[in-house]
Design a protein around this nucleic acid. Structure first.
Lengths: 159, 159
DNA sequence: CTCTCTGCAAAAGGTTTGCACGACG
DNA sequence: CGTCGTGCAAACCTTTTGCAGAGAG
């Protein structure tokens, strides 16, 4: 994805959020702007704590309840997706419709690699139809081992 | 799966557990037997609380810490898989190797339907290889809507 | 001015742990 | 009989909530 494309997407996300907030009588505050900006600019899957750390670089007095509440708002507006990778943390990622991807998680070093696979997507659609359902979204995670030097097997989970 | 086949699998699970426990110097207690029996006979994805309820039908004085500890043991021995479906509960399901299946979750009524799809499995394997990884296991969940009378759209999440 | 939002701290709710007693081997 | 396992309750940790004061519209 090009840099300009990414910037345009962020503008689009901001515009959608603005409309959602206007539609729901919600107010634009400096804290919400910092949190949503930090979130929209993030490109991975971040926990509340990680987001709060970035937010506090810009405004040190933001409380963590605000981050929770803002992410909840982003989730409700459809701009954030919640993910659970198994450690005790809920993670969030930007929901960009035309940028769907799944995850491969390295069992050795916990690296998370994103990929897209049109064929798999298609088969999922078929599978849901076969069961009589209309597929709305899905979650696919591959757990695998690399045996390459690039992946240093350093396995650093929370202490 | 036939009834006899299922019974044979449970015997196999028990045997594997027994060996694991022997190898690790762990003791066979009446509580562990009740918890593991209840778990092996269960065919879905159960939370600790649900398992504890079934366990207490047979032995009302089992504490819930024991269920947590026994499920942790089952997980470590590879006989149980942990799952997170989004509500705050960790769920467990029996890990039977030749009975792999994925899940379709109805967004209307929260029903969970299991399915198997050989073609998808194969593509996942290929995808992991393409990225330079050896696939160990995966998790695939389809979130979908049914529009059938069989699914009463009654959406009853935790109160 | 009104009504929402924030920050703090306390509460909630699922999971883990410390400890003394009990029981497996 | 020495350990390991159990049950209870307290501790833990992430997330949610109540409330008084701050700030958006």
């Amino acid at each position: 994805m090009s840099k300009g494309r990414r910037a345009a997407q962020i503008e689009d996300l901001k515009a959608r959020l603005e409309r959602y907030m206007a539609d729901h009588g919600l107010r634009s505050t400096s804290q919400r702007r910092v949190v949503t900006d930090v979130f929209f600019q993030s490109e991975g899957h971040y926990s509340i704590e990680e987001l709060l750390a970035k937010v506090r670089e810009e405004d040190p007095k933001v409380g963590y309840a605000t981050v929770y509440r803002t992410l909840k708002l982003l989730k409700e507006s459809g701009l954030a997706n919640e993910r659970h990778f198994g450690d005790g943390f809920t993670r969030y990622e930007v929901a960009i419709e035309d940028d769907h991807h799944d995850h491969l998680i390295c069992l050795d070093c916990d690296a998370v690699i994103e990929f897209e696979n049109e064929a798999i997507e298609h088969l999922q659609e078929e599978q849901a139809q076969k069961l009589g359902f209309e597929l709305k979204h899905h979650r696919l995670e591959l757990f695998a081992r690399c045996h390459r030097p690039g992946c240093p097997n350093k396995k650093a989970k929370r202490p």
